[in-house]
Write a protein that binds this DNA or RNA. Structure first.
Lengths: 350, 350
DNA sequence: TGTTAGCACTCTTCCTGTGCGAGTGCTAAC
DNA sequence: GTTAGCACTCGCACAGGAAGAGTGCTAACA
């Protein structure tokens, strides 16, 4: 048996209807609501074929049909093939970042909120992750007698800061001198390289070894607990709006997955740095998400690192809408993270 | 009618049982499970009295009784009066902060996780909030040609950082000089005072006005969008473990309340800076939380600011356990935030 | 006077059976 | 190839009934 154009059209109608309503759709519904020009009996025959082909499932004999993961896959593929659909509400993404927000983490949090409220699904935004960051500047700032703040600037603009203890009689100027030396010596190194080089430096810069030793402890500690990527989540409770999650057990499983941010980040980040992915049901590879779909897009920062934005919803997700919103949002974030720091907004590039 | 000792004992048994099981408790249960030496009939009479006094509710005529908010209040008050109960598992709090964690936000996140996993309820931890912070150090760190990082250290140890644009030909030494001047001039000011003083400073430090202007923009912007307190939440999904929230609508309401962190912070922070509060059901003042209780404790930082840790659970919460865990955790955090920065851990306070 | 045993009564919960409606599959006619 | 018709299936909602838990009341007892 073969898929012909008519089968495709009917399948699409079924998916559309199921996405809208969430209840199994019957032959009569398709024949009446969608101008197919066919009677329900014909639709029934086609549906029977589609089921045999693996595109439809039947919860029980007298219920309608629901689309299988395979059907969604076909649907999404044809959606993507025909180009990203400009959605009615997509342009409203643009309005949501009017006020300048400086901190990257704030932007990410905000993006997650906007994304979830636009899509009405759960949104996840991951901070960029690229190659291992390389040191650019190390600066020690005195906070009080006996303690100093370490500020480390890397080429990714990622800033790690922490307080270390120093001798009370080290003053600001000394700290500045140490900072300069460290910056000169360690610029361009990765953090792990810096770790290896520090003992040597400590030997050479005797007299300030106490400061450096504190720093060393900080570095090695930072190594073993690497600052994980920032994960922002929005709209976890949205998931409860869908009958798929009216079962409390399911809801709990889902929510506790959302709480373990590391695992979640791993799942959302997925297999690669693809610009765009749609994973449907079992394709997510996570048993807890067997009836979820994950749509992700990426955005880039100045250094060329890729961040990820994603939407998690039921498999009967409004794919076209979600895809177009993610698309817009990805571009918007890329613009923010690349454009804003290079030039004044009123000037042109070049 | 009066409360006598026996009524009190029976009420306590009812509350204990209801907290344990979550189902209305009958007279027979009390008479058999708790060694009262009384028959179920007697208990019934007492229960009838307790209901008349407003301590018990009856869902329907042939169900057992459940404690009212008033009953919990009595229960908690007597609990607090008799001193904080040392709980079997409370000491395990101590183990959870073994590895040094430096960033305050990380500590707070971690505390929320630990708190929720120990109590099996939802935990909320708020960063300290005190008087308006006063500037201690301002440091400009060159990141790349044309941009610098502003690091502001306040007496609360709160660090605000952001990137500003500077002229490409300003070098690190100049930035350091500017930083020193700024620190000297502005130390001890609040942020808003600094805002007012900056124009004057810009006039005086001509030549570097471009840097300062960028800084000025940063300050004024920071003023209008004050960095809100950090809110960490843990174990939101724990709430679904309790039959009280097997209703999806209730669960959704609760969860979406958890998502609006600002509002949540306001609720948890509550009325004052009391060391310890227990708000039961309606006492929370939030309709969505009519069948929740909120227990909070506070911790202090070096500057004497108060942070808040809280646990949100069903009204039939294991109060004594929660109170003792919160108590321990509060002390632990206070120790971390005050002790650690003052002295080496191996030394005694002088 | 306080306590207890006994009993009728109430109300929920669970189970079962039944009718209804939605939807299918098949067959025969067009 | 399409469609109308019909028998059939299955879930769902609802009603009725049995079981169980728990109460309130009364009368007897220490």
């Amino acid at each position: 048996m073969q898929m012909d154009e008519r089968k495709r059209r009917i399948l699409r109608a079924i998916i559309d209807d199921y996405i809208l309503t969430g209840v199994p759709v019957g032959s009569r519904t398709i024949s009446k609501k969608y101008e197919t020009g066919l009677s329900s009996a014909t639709i029934r025959n086609e549906m029977s074929d589609l089921e045999e082909l693996g595109f439809l499932d039947q919860p029980h004999v007298s219920a309608g049909r629901i689309p299988s993961a395979k059907a969604y896959r076909l649907y999404v593929d044809s959606l993507l093939q025909s180009g990203v659909i400009p959605d009615d509400s997509a342009e409203s993404v643009l309005g949501h970042f009017s006020g300048r927000i400086h901190q990257m983490e704030d932007v990410i949090d905000h993006a997650a909120r906007v994304l979830s409220s636009l899509t009405q699904y759960t949104a996840v935004v991951l901070s960029p992750k690229g190659m291992e960051p390389r040191l650019q500047t190390i600066q020690l700032v005195q906070i009080s007698m006996g303690s100093a703040l370490v500020v480390i600037v890397t080429d990714q603009g990622v800033i790690r800061d922490s307080v270390i203890r120093i001798s009370p009689d080290v003053d600001g100027d000394t700290l500045y001198a140490i900072s300069r030396t460290l910056t000169n010596e360690l610029r361009g190194c990765t953090l792990s390289e810096a770790c290896r080089m520090l003992p040597e430096l400590i030997r050479r810069m005797e007299g300030n070894d106490e400061v450096l030793r504190g720093l060393y402890g900080y570095f090695t500690e930072g190594q073993q607990t690497p600052r994980s990527t920032h994960v922002a989540i929005g709209g976890t409770s949205n998931m409860l709006n869908y009958p798929e999650y009216s079962d409390v057990d399911k809801a709990r499983n889902f929510l506790s997955l959302m709480e373990t941010r590391d695992k979640l980040a791993e799942i959302v980040r997925g297999n690669g740095e693809l610009a765009f992915t749609v994973r449907i049901g079992p394709e997510t590879g996570v048993p807890e998400m067997a009836d979820c779909s994950i749509v992700t897009a990426s955005y880039s920062t100045r250094g060329g690192q890729q961040g990820t934005i994603g939407v998690i919803g039921p498999t009967r997700m409004r794919y076209s809408r979600v895809i177009s919103i993610l698309n817009m949002m990805g571009h918007q974030l890329t613009d923010m993270f690349t454009g804003e720091d290079e030039e004044h907004p009123d000037g042109n590039k070049g």
